[in-house]
Design a protein around this nucleic acid. Structure first.
Lengths: 103, 103
DNA sequence: GACCAGGTTCGGTTTACATCGAACCTTAAG
DNA sequence: CTTAAGGTTCGATGTAAACCGAACCTGGTC
């Protein structure tokens, strides 16, 4: 079962859920932006300057998190999101390369 | 521009559109079923026994066709759908392997 | 302690999409 | 020529999802 923050383990990840998460332009842009950064980069939700309200941003990050695409770590004041590269490469090899080639 | 049946060329394919097409369970199942078949297999829409009405089937196949996932060829009486493997492998290398590994 | 920035939660609205039935077209078979 | 099977088109409906504002929480800063 996912942890208390909704992060699934590698084995729990479902391709259908991942594809569904990626099928939204905003969420796709977030994953793409993280993919451009060096591995392990953590960014706050607000740093992406998404053209939607705060509550909608929370909504999108929850879907990304529950699909297993990003990991949100508590940084006291705020929460930073990192791309789960190793887990994704292991569970869905080729997926991140595919996205990286289509930014 | 797409042809008169809505088939995009390789270059016109968009990963976002493809992911959106694949994010529906029924459409994912259709692609998965075609992926199990030998390359070049053509199947009629009805042969998938989808648990929805005829008009809904038409709707789903249009989305698959306009995303570039399948090609629908007129067979007189009916229309047969084939997976566009070569085009997809060329434009989105690794995508079909990814789906094939998650059936 | 007052304040602010980053996030969350909670209803609510609006928009997108999956779904359907009915009418219609086309082709093949009887 | 009638029938039937496979698809399409056209509204219409229902539901899921994207979106918002307001209230709230937390942890820094002054």
């Amino acid at each position: 079962m996912p942890d208390e923050d909704g992060h699934p383990s590698r084995e729990e990840m479902s391709l259908l859920t991942v594809l569904n998460a990626l099928s939204d332009p905003l969420r796709y842009a977030v994953v793409g932006a993280l993919l451009r950064e060096p591995e392990g980069t953590a960014r706050t939700c607000a740093s992406f300057n998404l053209p939607v309200s705060k509550s909608t941003i929370t909504h999108h990050f929850r879907i990304l998190r529950e699909a297993g695409l990003v990991q949100q770590v508590d940084r006291g004041n705020s929460r930073a999101a990192t791309l789960r590269r190793a887990d994704l490469d292991h569970r869905f090899p080729g997926l991140l390369d595919l996205i990286g080639a289509n930014l």
